[in-house]
Computed example of a mutant assay.
Amino acid sequence: MTDPTRGVLYPDRLPRFSRIPAGDEASPLAAWFWIPQWELADGVESRQPILGYPAANLVVEGDQVTLWGATTRASERVLRGSGWAVGALLRPAALAWLTEAPSDLVDASVAIDAPDLRDAVTTAMPDETAAAAAFAEWLTRHAGPVTPEGRLANAMVELLMTDASLLRVEDAAERLRVSVRTLQRLAHRTVGLPPAAMIRRRRLQEAAQRVREDPEASLAGIASELGYADQAHLAKDFRTVLGFTATVYRVGG
Rank of each mutant, 00 (worst) to 15 (best):
T5Q: 15
D12C: 14
R13T: 05
P15T: 04
G23K: 01
A26D: 02
F33Q: 01
W34G: 04
W34M: 04
W38M: 09
A41Y: 11
A41N: 14
R47D: 13
V65Q: 11
E76H: 05
S82M: 13
P92L: 02
A94M: 10
A94I: 10
A94L: 03
L95W: 01
L95S: 01
A96P: 07
L98V: 06
P102M: 10
D104Q: 07
L105A: 05
V106M: 02
A108V: 03
S109V: 11
S109I: 12
A111W: 10
A111H: 10
D116C: 04
L117Y: 00
T122R: 06
A124Q: 03
M125Y: 02
M125I: 00
E128S: 14
T129Q: 09
T129I: 04
A132K: 02
A133I: 04
F135E: 01
A136S: 08
A136C: 04
T140A: 04
H142R: 12
A143Q: 05
G144F: 05
P145N: 08
V146E: 02
T147E: 00
T147I: 07
L159W: 12
L159T: 14
A164L: 15
L167N: 06
E170A: 13
A173M: 09
V178H: 01
S179G: 12
R185M: 06
L186F: 05
A187F: 03
A187E: 03
R189Q: 15
R189V: 13
G192T: 00
I199V: 14
R203S: 07
L204A: 10
E206L: 15
E206Y: 15
A208Q: 09
V211M: 10
V211L: 12
E213W: 11
E213F: 02
D214F: 14
D214M: 11
D214C: 07
D214Y: 08
P215F: 08
P215I: 13
E216S: 11
A217M: 03
A223D: 07
S224C: 02
E225Q: 15
Y228V: 01
Q231F: 11
L234K: 03
A235R: 15
K236R: 13
D237A: 15
F238H: 06
T240F: 09
V241S: 09
V241T: 13
L242I: 15
G243N: 00
T247A: 14
V248A: 13
